[in-house]
Design a protein around this nucleic acid. Structure first.
Lengths: 341, 341
DNA sequence: ACAACTCAAGAAAACGATTTAGTAAATGCA
DNA sequence: TGCATTTACTAAATCGTTTTCTTGAGTTGT
């Protein structure tokens, strides 16, 4: 622990100055190659490891990226969709020599605001997987000039890696439409940018096909709340004029709906069709396999990582807002049947 | 960014020396309370944020904990059980003023070994959620004198937060036994400490109840591989003398088994009973609700966090191995039926 | 009134790296 | 040979804290 070797120790061993050792390690021009080799050899023998704090103090960068993953429901890392994106992001930035550290979201006595935490730890950039954009400290962070990349939220000055909510939702509707469904219900999530885009897609699609989605086919259900989805599904099934297909806001609520149907002896997809959204692991495990939108979380993480690092390493390239749209794809599954067969 | 205010700036503003400012901020005795107040007021007005690098360089500690979450299957953060533990751990250490940073597990060009990463970043301690204990660099890290806490792996010199595999497995067997099951199959995971403990529990329980678990009731299935579990379940259902209850190594494989049964028209739990392990979210969503062992991931994370910080802050208290056993509990669910009813 | 203290502040060294400025020796060129 | 340039290295300042050692003023005790 304490006995770590520093440049000074190597300098002493090699009978050279500390600056020469530093230059040798950083492969600077003004050290002869003979000395460079010798110094590096000794450094390796002495098991030299540079001191992050010292170089970060001296340099302008830390190669450390702060991560915010803060959710109303407090699921945080247990949210598979976000966990997937973060995992891919982590791999991407690690490959480019960066490291990630979580920002304190809530607990901890007299914690700093997000922005102060960034100043304190000198993060080179911040990746917001999920946050409450109404929060004052989030706005403060976004107003500062630290590079930020976020998921699924449009910003004036930062990068938004956005899944193609509008397009994906349309594709899903088309898939369902193509199988003959006309009475389509949508159990959408609570109000947010994501929800609004999907609802818009829904409205546009319906209009274009001269269909209507009556109010009683549109329930609001909190994202990932399977219990609530079960209850709402039951209510919807009790309608005098049942939909032939129910779309859910995510896979967990869809499974919540599925279970209630199975309990009631309603067969999926023979009696009614359903579809989820996201394409998390479990969607392919349940039977019938869920029809869903498989979001390309790997691509989202990779793009988020690369965009952020580019903004860090080439500042000035662009501080204006940028929206990278990542398409998802319909995962056919087995939970949407063909009408009239 | 660059325009951050330092102690020097405050000193200038207050017409005092830097050391006085530092002492005032750290509430040292040898500054008059009048000056302290004045300095703190100015510091607040100037939006002073301490420089983590500078203080970490000077101090011995960083209040940063390294996290290793490296799995054969590469699921990493997508592994809900581990994600739950990590989430609880994160909350715990944040409450005590610490921050967590992921260690580079694999990618990244010329990455340091785990131990060198620790020396480089000067982590105060390391939390190993999951790692390959055969790896040389893991052994090297464990041999060093940095405080380490791990999950479900016994070590001579470190803290092991262990779910009570043996006891939990026995409880599950007892639950199944109490419902009349005698022909119990176990689709256990691949060889590991966890698997061995559960198998031992199985063997002991069977012996004590003068039962036997024949070889054809014991299949090996990789953890969380639902596809594989489906296939193996099919094979097991084809046995001339079927078990009345199949235990799986985790909830995902159990659901894999469940789906194959539903496809074959075999009713759970009327025709056959099943049970999972872990108690992840989905276990309570599928129908029938899965009978499973609900692991206390919250407690595991809390204990891991507190034990680690205690070892960090009070070194010398004990460097010997320690095993903290955390009990899980049987989640009755609906997937185990009563025999002879 | 004078030694012995306490109190409140400052100066300076240290942590470990990087970088700028400086210097001595070696080389180039006429 | 003499002057300019290059080469290879060192000394010292710097990043922003923390801490130890001084110091001078004020207080106490006899």
């Amino acid at each position: 622990m304490g006995e770590s070797v520093s440049l000074k120790d190597i300098a002493k061993m090699c009978n050279v100055s500390v600056s020469t050792v530093s230059k040798a390690m950083n492969d600077r021009a003004d050290v002869s190659s003979a000395k460079k080799e010798e110094i590096r050899k000794v450094a390796k023998e002495m098991n030299y490891v540079p001191n992050y704090m010292a170089s970060a103090l001296k340099n302008q960068y830390t190669r450390n990226i702060g991560v915010i993953l803060s959710e109303e429901t407090g699921q945080g890392l247990m949210h598979e969709h976000f966990a997937r994106i973060l995992n891919s992001f982590k791999d991407t930035v690690e490959e480019r020599g960066y490291v990630i550290t979580f920002l304190n979201s809530s607990n901890s006595p007299n914690r700093f605001s997000y922005m102060k935490q960034c100043q304190y730890m000198k993060f080179d950039g911040v990746f917001i997987v999920c946050a409450d954009y109404h929060q004052e400290e989030v706005r403060e962070l976004l107003a500062s000039n630290i590079p930020v990349v976020v998921i699924d939220h449009t910003l004036k000055r930062h990068v938004n890696i956005a899944s193609n909510q509008y397009g994906d939702m349309r594709r899903l509707l088309q898939f369902v439409f193509d199988r003959g469904h006309r009475k389509i219900a949508y159990m959408h999530g609570k109000n947010s940018e994501v929800t609004r885009d999907r609802l818009l897609a829904c409205k546009d699609f319906m209009n274009e096909h001269h269909l209507e989605m009556p109010k009683e086919y549109m329930y609001t259900c909190p994202y990932r709340d399977a219990e609530r989805a079960s209850a709402l599904t039951k209510a919807m099934l009790a309608l005098p004029d049942r939909p032939t297909c129910i779309l859910y806001s995510d896979d967990l609520t869809a499974i919540g709906g599925l279970t209630v149907m199975q309990e009631m002896g309603i067969r999926v997809p023979e009696d009614i069709s359903i579809a989820g959204y996201d394409g998390i692991n479990i969607a392919g495990i349940v039977r019938p396999r869920l029809t869903t939108i498989r979001q390309d979380t790997v691509s989202m993480g990779i793009q988020a990582g690369n965009k952020l690092i580019n903004r860090i390493e080439f500042p000035g390239i662009g501080l204006e807002g940028e929206k990278v749209i990542v398409d998802g794809m319909v995962e056919p599954g087995e939970s949407v049947g063909v009408i009239g067969r």
